[in-house]
Amino acid sequence: MRFCKIVDTTLRDGEQAPGHAFSLDDKVFLASLLDGAGVYQIEAGVPAMGRDEQDAVCAVKDACKTAVVSTWNRLTEEDVRASVACHPDIIHLCLPVSERHITRKLRTTQAALLRQFSRVAEYAAGRGYRVTAGFEDASRAEVPFLLQAAETAKRHGIERIRLSDTLGMLRPSSAALLVRTAREVGLPVEMHAHNDLGMALANSAIAVLAGAGFIDTTLLGIGERAGNCGLGAFVAACREYTAISPLQARKAERLALPLLSRCRQRKFFT
């Protein structure tokens, strides 16, 4: 029987959508809703952004009764240091794995990126943290490099890899293939889907069927561009695969709606 845990990223990827800027109190409020709904993990923010964000992450950590709290980091020791200041449960390291992101965005090479990955992973693990890795733009990665990156992750004690469909380009057959490919390495797999083609939910659902044990969601599906996989919609469609009841998820979304719709004012978009 397939089963998945929910990793909610409303406070990180959700907030990145234009129009959203959560205060510390907002983050604590949303985190309590998510914690109450029974999500497994809350991605609380990006400590490297500064002091305010670090304070918010700490407050989120204090507010969560059952959910584990993770922080998002670029692949640098500096980012990890900012995270360590917040004492999260999990430190999440993000690295792009597609050729175009590596060469055109980071302007580095695959080999150099993997060396940096090893170094920063060692650094984070060496401080006693659980570490997860996020493979950005995994949908366009070359399979051999994807596997090489996953092997590197495994060697350094990283406990799970996130496959990000950063552009929302996957369809169920390609999403299932990607999950199966990544699982060959033997680490638990997490799916992070975007909704650019209206398929975030379907891609997440098929990922569970293909063996992904963790699914990324946001409240009401907020996120960059067309958003992420919505918590309530996912849980409703996949109730037999999660421990969260659709009712709890709906309730959290209903309570979050006033806060989340405040930011959706037309003036930014027209």
Binding site: D196, I222, R225
Partner: peptide, 12 residues
């Protein structure tokens, strides 16, 4: 606003 493909916010 965030509707895939046609929402007015998706290219912001």
């Amino acid at each position: 606003p965030a509707k895939a493909v046609i929402g007015e916010a998706i290219f912001s």
